[in-house]
Design a binder for these strands. Sequence first.
DNA 1: CGTTAGCACTCATTAAAGGAGAGTGCTAAC
DNA 2: GTTAGCACTCTCCTTTAATGAGTGCTAACG
Lengths: 347, 347
Amino acid sequence: MWGDCTMELDARKRKVLEAIVIDYIATAEPVGSRTIARKYDLGVSPATIRNEMADLEEMGLIEQPHTSAGRVPSDAGYRYYVDCLMEKTAIAQEAKTLIEKSFQTKIKQLEDLIQLSLKILSQMTSYTSLVLAPQFGKSTLQLIQLMFVEPGKALIVVVTDSGRIENRIVDIPESVTKTDLEIVSKVLNDKFKGLPVKDWEKAILKEVRAQLVKQHKVLSLALELINTLLNEETDDKVYLAGALNILNQPEFKDISKVKNIFQLLENEDVVCSMLKDESEDGIQVKIGHENKHESIKECSIITATYKLEGRILGTIGLLGPTRMQYSQAMSILEFLTETLSLAIKRL
Amino acid sequence: MWGDCTMELDARKRKVLEAIVIDYIATAEPVGSRTIARKYDLGVSPATIRNEMADLEEMGLIEQPHTSAGRVPSDAGYRYYVDCLMEKTAIAQEAKTLIEKSFQTKIKQLEDLIQLSLKILSQMTSYTSLVLAPQFGKSTLQLIQLMFVEPGKALIVVVTDSGRIENRIVDIPESVTKTDLEIVSKVLNDKFKGLPVKDWEKAILKEVRAQLVKQHKVLSLALELINTLLNEETDDKVYLAGALNILNQPEFKDISKVKNIFQLLENEDVVCSMLKDESEDGIQVKIGHENKHESIKECSIITATYKLEGRILGTIGLLGPTRMQYSQAMSILEFLTETLSLAIKRL
DNA sequence: CGTTAGCACTCATTAAAGGAGAGTGCTAAC
DNA sequence: GTTAGCACTCTCCTTTAATGAGTGCTAACG
């Protein structure tokens, strides 16, 4: 979408830009011509590099915090780096085994698996990790059960194929008996098993109502409950881990910035929109101003999707400063989502 | 436990101390003798107040950040204030109605009720609110059910009288059928309903095993599952809200302090120990160094318990700087826990 | 013509120095 | 016992100066 690597940049300019990005990512300090000449041997003098830098600045790929400082990559510079310069490093073998080992657990709950992924991610990368859990509506039903708790109160449990479990305690008429609930459960199960949750509403009226003349009251109740479940905000569920990692980044030593970011992250809807945005396949990177929300204009987000049998279940992402270890983070994220997808399959 | 108001303090010293505490809580600035004389009319000159302050400092109730600054209450000073000086203000009527209105909702889940309380608390006080959810082990069983999901997989759901719901997906032998699970569910329900969860282990071996010779395999499985459920760390569950409020306090503009506190709060066990400590009845206040954990030595915690039919279910608390609006916070917390207890009863 | 050395210039950062102000402790008088 | 007066201390803020990193420009070089 972004990267047209056709932008006329001769080999040396590319090398200079790369050096600036790499060095700035590593040190968080503006990098000067001298540094580049010394550390990255381009075989030319600082003066030559200065000329190149002037050009790069004019093209908008780097910028100067102030007159007598070195250069810093602009968002466009990072973008060019990510799309055209960065070689996609294979994930380190040790990281690979670390992830694989972590997933050798007998976790049975989807939620726990997701939490585990987040933990691993933020620990390995030192960035904040986010995830959009499998959407309820898109999954298919594996089990639905109404249970009698006490007169006037029932428990409804729904399990989807993606392993998500939802439960609610609900009021029912005092007259409804255990048996009523069991019958309704059975019918609902028979009819809906394997059906995408969001298709229920259509199916409900036609098929089921006919079959359950007897438990009519109970049924309409159950339907109402299911509707509640469906319509609740609960459909998009996000989790995050390692938010405190943000505090380690030198660019966020200012407390007000941190506060803004945290406030954003506290808002589920916002996090959701950040992740949902690009639920295409493959790894996506949003750099700085490419993000919608003001507070993270100095951050980048890398996202990837995890799947079950080819179907995209949700998105998992990493949030860090624009000065982020893109290559490393991307390879870790990629491998982790693959591993996660496999683990979900095994559930 | 702390407050022996017998400490010899004449009326004027008490007034001076009170003035210092109140003013410092309000302004976060060290308060000088002049300020006290002006704002709180004790009918004496600054010089006299200075003398009194020298005495108070010697007693360890106030201290000086540096030679030419005003005085600040010490932890002991706050303690004396809370125990002996502060008049227990009745909660403001508007706050009262605000809380009551917030609880006029048809929430059916204990967890949601607790979350609601946290939200209200942190919004009303601008402090961080914490809660220790009802312990699983101490509650009594209301419903236990094993459900067949697919061959080799079952769902176990447990509901306690305090409204807590736990569920797990578990592996079962392929041979186990739906009917097996239903029978086991029935027996478990009959035997355990109304029993405190933590008493199960004792009861299990004797009573149940005898009855279920047929489903012996299934049963031992079920027992195993239940054990897992019981032994999991999940028993002490904490929630918190409004952690970001900490960032608004002037004493925490230093990012490293904030980081330490957040790290503490991120650790469930720690938060748990902070709340569990005093699960006595009534409102408890821990001031500054009275807290075990280093990172919150500049904070105070106010805790109260919420109940169901006289039995203490859990603890709810407020975390703020030692320079905290004790009186207001305590009255709000007190009224809120009462309201919460009532709401739980209505569940 | 591209490259480079040289140099003047800019600007952030740091340290030192000099008030200004707030508040105290002490002393002496009431 | 209380209070006015005053010297003293220490933080905070501002000013000033020095340092140093890095640049842009120009002129010379191959």
